[in-house]
Nucleic acid binder design. Structure first.
Length: 175
DNA sequence: GCAGTGATCATA
DNA sequence: ATGATCACTGCC
């Protein structure tokens, strides 16, 4: 109680994610991804923002796979890409509006496919709430991130997305 | 620079 | 049932 910097870790709750995806994505830098299999600080994310975003999976409407994106914020959306790699996203904003943050870098793991492989995350996590019961959640451990430490770039791997391919929705914590 | 890999979705 | 697509990675 005497040391200002010794904040207890707090689990990020639904209210944190029930906001526009861009501020949520930016503020996830410096937070921790935690599971029984491993954990680390989030260092790279991307935002996917609603039906107008030509790179967002929600742009084609509700399907079985993308259902979690249309569900309540604070739940996981996990899908397989290129037949090999599970992509981990946290759903944001309001129920019915498809938006999510892709977790691309955590601790020593640089790359969304490496994170899920290291932590043993697969599609069975999709649609579950991000809490201790599901076994995968995020924590604020008091790490302060200055805006000067954040680099913004276009998103990776979405060259098909027309005018949306160049929007700076990727956030990287400077090394 | 590009192959590997298989679920998903549209079309039928 | 079939074919195109794909928010990656590792090796050429």
């Amino acid at each position: 109680m005497h040391t200002a910097g010794s904040a207890r870790a707090t689990t990020l709750q639904s209210a944190f994610f029930a906001r526009q995806v861009l501020p949520v994505a930016q503020e996830l830098l410096g937070k921790y991804l935690v599971s029984p299999c491993g954990e680390g600080m989030i260092t790279e994310v991307e935002a996917y923002d609603g039906p107008e975003d030509k790179a967002c999976h929600g742009r084609f409407g509700f399907t079985e796979r993308t259902a979690p994106m249309f569900g309540p914020p604070g739940h996981w959306y996990v899908y397989l890409v290129y037949g090999m790699y599970w992509m981990l996203n946290i759903v944001t904003d309001t129920e019915g509006y498809p938006s999510a943050v892709l977790i691309r870098g955590v601790g020593e793991w640089h790359g969304p496919g490496k994170i899920t492989k290291a932590l043993g995350i697969d599609g069975s996590m999709s649609g579950k709430n991000a809490d201790e019961q599901s076994g995968l959640w995020m924590e604020d451990r008091g790490v302060r991130v200055l805006s000067s430490q954040i680099r913004r770039t276009p998103r990776v791997g979405i060259g098909y997305a027309g005018e949306w391919k160049d929007v700076p929705y990727r956030f990287v914590l400077a090394q």
